[in-house]
């Protein structure tokens, strides 16, 4: 009886209400539109931007300043420096994070001191410092620790215990010094990011893995890190983008093989300032845009098994199974 009455009851008429007005939003929109229009107007009409200098031809017979050979060379340097110092930063950062979380007090304090030091020192200072480290040694190489002292102990004057060494000023000049300065500093930040990621994973996860007989390395590689990546990737994207821009600091090492330095050189030669800065800005925008797109895909990869999208897809599949076949598109 009651069932029938509920199913028979008429569906009320759909709500057609007057939506709330937002006059402030429209005012805001208007202000923004005017500002954008003014900005575009500035870009187009102010010829001191010298767009053709940037894009087409900066001297007779030469390409625009963004595309000249030295600047492209600098761009390659910036990309290479970003990749190599981030590689050092990420790998070393993972090692330091694991050391920091180790039960071994010595390892964890070494890791702590490392992050303390490299986070405390400004990158600029570090870059200059690494550029001048070759003052300390003449040669750098692999060999016995305290090789020379051991040699003296046995009365051998020219023994230094080195298997392989090269001149310090060759190794620690320019690119390598810049890469080390940025990479080692980055490792300290990455270590904190990785540590936060690892600590965000429920202890039950590693417990379950250990109970299945997995080794500590397997637990980390197969269970903890893949899940921690969800927490690690977004701030790492931030770090990479910051690194693209921080590469300009290595001009103080000095490294000449770098975008900003090369553009400054053009500026010095041609006495053109603003368009060169705009050219640099455009390159940095392009690099960071590419990185952000890449980050989107990496994040999507590591969010397997989480999130609304996966659940929605599954719900659809369940409905299909329940209806005993594929949904062909038409309403039931």
């Amino acid at each position: 009886m009651s069932d029938e009455s509920t199913s028979v009851r008429a569906r009320p008429e759909a709500i057609k209400a007057v939506p709330v007005r937002h006059p402030a939003r429209w005012v805001g929109l208007g202000v923004i539109a005017i500002l954008v229009a003014m900005f575009v107007h500035l870009l187009v009409t102010n010829d001191r931007f010298r767009w053709s200098f940037i894009f087409l031809e900066y001297q007779d017979g030469k390409r625009g300043v963004m595309f000249t050979e030295p600047v492209l060379e600098g761009l390659r340097g910036t990309i290479l420096l970003t990749i190599s110092s981030m590689a050092i930063g990420i790998l070393l950062g993972i090692v330091i994070a694991i050391m920091r979380l180790s039960e071994n007090k010595i390892l964890s304090s070494v890791a702590f001191v490392y992050t303390w030091f490299f986070r405390a020192v400004p990158r600029l200072v570090l870059a200059v410092l690494f550029g001048n480290l070759n003052i300390l040694w003449e040669r750098i190489g692999f060999g016995l620790p305290f090789g020379t002292q051991i040699g003296q102990l046995f009365g051998l004057d020219n023994f230094d215990g080195q298997f392989y060494s090269i001149k310090a000023s060759d190794l620690l000049a320019g690119f390598v010094a810049g890469m080390l300065a940025l990479g080692l500093s980055e490792a300290a930040y990455m270590a904190e990011i990785v540590r936060a990621g690892i600590q965000s994973i429920d202890e039950g996860q590693s417990e379950a893995a250990v109970a299945l007989g997995m080794s500590r390395g397997q637990v980390l590689r197969r269970v903890v890190l893949p899940q921690a990546m969800r927490v690690i990737v977004p701030p790492t994207g931030n770090e990479i983008i910051a690194m693209v821009k921080d590469t300009s600091l290595v001009a103080f090492v000095p490294v000449t093989f770098e975008l900003w330095f090369q553009l400054q050189q053009v500026s010095a030669r041609t006495f053109v300032v603003l368009p060169v800065i705009v050219a640099a800005l455009i390159w940095y925008l392009i690099l960071c845009t590419v990185l952000m797109v890449a980050q989107f895909f990496v994040e999507r990869h590591f969010s397997k098994g989480y999130g609304a999208a996966a659940k929605a897809k599954q719900r659809l599949r369940d409905i299909q199974v329940e209806q005993g076949g594929r949904i062909t598109g038409e309403a039931p």
Binding site: E207, A208, G305
Partner: peptide
């Protein structure tokens, strides 16, 4: 030795 936990602890990824 197999172990089953109160909170399942399946690997979500």
């Amino acid at each position: 030795i197999g172990m089953v936990f109160q909170r399942f602890n399946l690997f979500p990824h």
